[in-house]
Design a protein around this nucleic acid. Structure first.
Length: 837
RNA sequence: GCCGAAGUGGCGGAAUGGCAGACGCUGCGGUCUCAAAAACCGUUGAGGGCAACCUCGUGUGGGUUCGACUCCCACCUUCGGCACCA
């Protein structure tokens, strides 16, 4: 760190202020406004399309323009801005852009409820929120802003859609899909949350509908999305994505009905095939119709009807008793030729695997419960070591290991998935006999992107009676949203009800055709916005490749963890497609990710209007200034933990701002005592600590260190070190260290001590390692691990000398009390531990 | 059930093998003031002692170590995600 390029602090710029009797109070509110204006005018945050030196792309999740910045925004943005400023002082050319995720339902709902035009509503919100963001003191170049509802942005959503379509990555299908009855639109599987299966944005339970919908083939990238090599993301997010993708290895096995129809099943335990005594199909399985015998038809139909009427939640309740109905038919177990009855049951889902399973009741708890209920046999084929399970008497399934029994060629092989174990052997046998093959399934579904709403990107497809579906030619993009639309929530896309918009001509034959009237999921907008920031008005491609080459990818992304399996998965997918399209040379959009926690109300509950615990940042800023609010956001605790707001806690950082102001601007009395060298040590130790803490996003401890430092300076000011060079160095260092954390205060202080505009263009002061080392150090002296005394010794004291000093210590002698000394542990710089018996 | 995070004073938290509780809030005492606010100074884990000091203490129980909030094993609790996923 403190190498040849060390920039030592020089106190030359410090001009002592004239002594005044009356201390000037810091007026945060007017000072902040003044500097914000100056920053704007002087363009110190201007983006460089050619980075000056090492580039650092710091990105934070963009807001939805709801019309007001809340505490959550402050909690997300204060530290990310501080970090960006810090990196800039560390010598990087930092790009820290901001934009608006401007498509979405609230705009449309405002139109429905209050008759306001969604576009006007959105843009006036954006104007207001931009002024709020400026009031936070963020380091944003607003020239680089992107707004997703601008045609110049969503034009490229449409362009991407067409590229996806050409690559076979976008396709339309008619299928049962999740529908939110409150938002009146379909949702992607990721956007249905929890056991209650509720809509991600409004919390309403979703229902199933059969609809024609566009999907993106994210499943094609499932395996690649499981690979996180080369990125530094929180373990939690990677685990959630892995979990969501749900890769599961096993085999496809083909059973045959007595009529000769194949039924394919997926299993992770092909080794237990010899213990399969029945099959179960999902009630919706297409073969059920043909398999059902006349005698069983009434019962099967009744069961299917009942299953279809059950809500998804009821059906998927894990604790529900298993139910099912026999179809009347049998299949042949391919490994041993046995006849096994084919049942239908709602615990088998059409949406996973093949919608059909082989049931091995002795080794799968679900199958076991089902078999016991309906009197089906439960033969054991895996015998756990040292036991002798009997299929007739077991009371639960044995899913664990052991040795294969009653399994023909597998007998005697140890059960397991490893090389030389039963699963591999079974797959080999199946492949050799043409009865099955190794297979992988995923829980991940393709990304459904059609939305039956107005305020989004029109899907650039037209439907011609003669030529079928046709993409809109790229030179006709964007397909613009019409403004004269009725916003009645009918459950159909408002665009469908527009008298003329949907009528167009076929790009192929020129005949009459209709546009797709759905719009895209707004998560499409945020899947690639980080690229658009680089050149928000570029009209030849989604972004200017020359700038992209210099600035991409994002070095540090920050945002909430709630996007783990939505936005953060989609944007990884999108980047991989962009790579395959030749637009970028990398496959991961963000090298590092940090998830901030959630700021809570004073009652430790999530802030909400209904709880009445919402704290309005604007009021606080108007009263205390933005710096104090920023500082408190960062001081609460580790950024990734979140935590409760506390109004009195804010007073603490307000006080700190005033104390920092006072120590820099107020003259001290001086006095006797004090050691300039000791002060320099404090200064350089603080520089080291604060720098290291900001580097690792430990804003809370960085601020604590600065508080300690200011407290110390208050004491030092009344000693002879006041107004020495060491003092001036300290004041200057303090001002610079405050710059990323409290940008307005430090700018004002910097100008007061004669610094050249701007403090935000200054390099971060380097500490001098040699100066951080004390001449004398205090060592703890322990006897049997208990602290008995502290001794102060010169830093270069030998171990032998330390040992003797410690042993000679009065208190130590008293504690030893004649016992024999077994061992003396000396840890240089830390302690001495004397072990006695 | 599986995966992940966390458990430390009255509160937010600090310490990643070496002085537990930095820093801040709250409370208590004081300076200033006619008074209050602000500001400043002191104090604030529990128990004991007139005192110097002593004992206990980081969810629980074990273990490793000269030494454990920190590492290992088992468990408890809370939060987040997933889940009849075959």
């Amino acid at each position: 760190m403190a190498g040849a390029n060390t920039r030592h602090l020089t106190p030359v710029n410090y001009k002592p202020l004239p002594e005044t009797n009356m201390a000037e109070r810091y007026d945060a509110v007017t000072t902040e406004k003044r500097w914000q204006q100056r920053w704007d005018e002087s363009g110190i945050y201007k983006f460089h399309s050619q980075p000056q030196g090492r580039k650092y792309y710091a990105l934070t999740m963009l807001p939805y323009p709801s019309g007001n910045l809340h505490m959550g925004h402050w909690y997300a943005y204060s530290p990310s801005d501080t970090s960006a400023r810090f990196m800039r002082m560390r010598g990087y050319d930092v790009f820290f852009p901001m934009g608006f995720d401007a498509f979405g339902l609230p705009a449309e709902n405002a139109a429905i409820k209050r008759g306001i035009n969604p576009k006007h509503w959105t843009y006036s919100n954006i104007d207001y929120m931009r002024s709020q963001l400026k009031a936070m003191g963020m380091m944003i170049d607003w020239e680089q802003q992107m707004v997703s509802c601008d045609p110049e942005y969503y034009r490229w959503n449409q362009w991407f859609f067409i590229q996806f379509y050409k690559q076979g990555l976008a396709y339309r299908t008619f299928a049962p899909v999740d529908w939110c009855p409150s938002c009146n639109t379909t949702l992607a599987r990721e956007q249905v949350k929890g056991e209650e299966r509720v809509c991600e944005r409004c919390g309403t339970p979703v229902i199933k509908k059969d609809l024609d919908q566009w999907l993106f083939r994210i499943t094609k990238y499932a395996d690649e999305l499981l690979d996180f090599s080369g990125v530094e993301w929180p373990e939690r997010i990677m685990a959630m994505q892995r979990n969501w993708i749900g890769r599961s290895e096993g085999a496809h096995v083909t059973f045959t009905t007595e009529d000769g129809d194949p039924i394919e099943v997926f299993t992770t335990r092909p080794d237990t095939l010899w213990g399969a005594t029945f099959m179960v199909l999902a009630p919706e399985h297409p073969l059920v119709e043909r398999l059902t015998t006349d005698e069983q038809r009434a019962e099967v139909e009744a069961y299917k009807l009942a299953a279809s009427r059950q809500s998804e939640i009821e059906r998927q309740a894990t604790d529900k008793e298993k139910t099912g109905v026999w179809t009347g038919s049998y299949a042949i177990n391919p490994v041993n030729g046995e006849r096994v009855p084919i049942w239908i049951a709602d615990y088998v889902l059409m949406g996973y695997g093949t919608g059909a399973i082989m049931a091995v009741p002795a080794h799968d708890q679900r199958d076991f419960e089902f078999a016991r209920k309906y009197g089906l046999p439960t033969p054991v084929v895996v015998q756990p070591e040292g036991q002798n399970l009997d299929g007739a008497t077991i009371t639960e399934a044995w899913p664990g290991g052991g040795v294969m029994v009653n399994s023909g060629p597998l007998n005697g092989i140890p059960a397991g998935k490893e090389e030389g174990e039963s699963v591999k052997a079974a797959i080999q046998w199946l492949e050799e006999h043409g009865k099955g093959r190794t297979a992988v399934t995923y829980r991940l579904r393709d990304w459904l992107i059609s939305r039956q709403r107005y305020w989004g990107t029109p899907i650039p497809m037209v439907y011609c009676q003669k030529c079928g579906e046709q993409p809109v030619p790229e030179d006709q993009l964007p397909v613009e949203l019409p403004e004269d639309v009725d916003f009645m929530p009918t459950g159909q896309s408002p665009l469908k009800l527009h008298p003329t918009w949907r009528l167009t001509t076929c790009p192929d034959c020129g005949g009459e055709a209709e546009r797709d009237t759905d719009t895209m999921d707004t998560f499409v907008d945020s899947s690639w916005y980080q690229y658009r920031y680089l050149s928000p008005h570029f009209d030849q491609a989604p972004f200017d490749p020359a700038i992209g080459e210099r600035w991409l990818p994002v070095d540090q992304y920050t945002g909430g963890a709630e996007h783990a399996v939505m936005h953060l998965l989609y944007t990884r997918f999108w980047t991989k497609v962009m790579r395959d399209l030749g637009l970028v040379s990398f496959g991961e959009p963000m090298r590092r990710l940090f998830n901030q926690g959630i700021i809570l109300g004073e009652d430790n509950e999530k802030m909400s209007k209904s709880r009445g615990n919402v704290i309005d940042p604007d009021h606080l800023v108007a009263r205390y200034g933005a710096d104090s609010v920023r500082l408190f956001m960062m001081f609460i605790g580790p950024w990734n933990q979140g935590g409760p707001w506390n109004n009195q806690g804010l007073e603490g950082t307000v006080r700190f701002v005033n104390r920092a102001w006072n120590i820099v601007t107020e003259a001290g009395k001086g006095g006797s005592g004090g050691d300039p060298q000791e002060l320099r040590r404090r200064t350089h130790r603080t520089l080291k600590k604060v720098g290291e803490d900001l580097e690792r996003f430990a804003f809370n401890t960085a601020i604590a260190a600065l508080m300690e430092y200011v407290n110390d300076l208050y004491k030092q000011r009344e000693t002879a070190v006041y107004n020495t060079e060491a003092w001036h160095e300290a004041i200057r260092a303090l001002t610079l260290m405050l710059a990323p954390l409290a940008p307005h205060l430090s700018e004002e202080l910097w100008s007061r001590i004669g610094g050249e505009y701007s403090v935000h263009l200054q390099p971060w002061p380097q500490y001098d390692e040699a100066l951080t080392i004390a001449e004398a150090i205090e060592l703890v002296v322990q006897v049997n691990g208990k602290v008995r005394d502290r001794i102060t010794v010169p830093v270069d004291t030998s171990e032998e000398q330390i040992r003797e000093t410690a042993l000679g210590n009065d208190k130590v002698q008293a504690s030893i009390d004649g016992k024999s000394i077994a061992k003396v542990v000396v840890v240089p710089g830390k302690l001495v531990n004397i072990v006695v018996r």
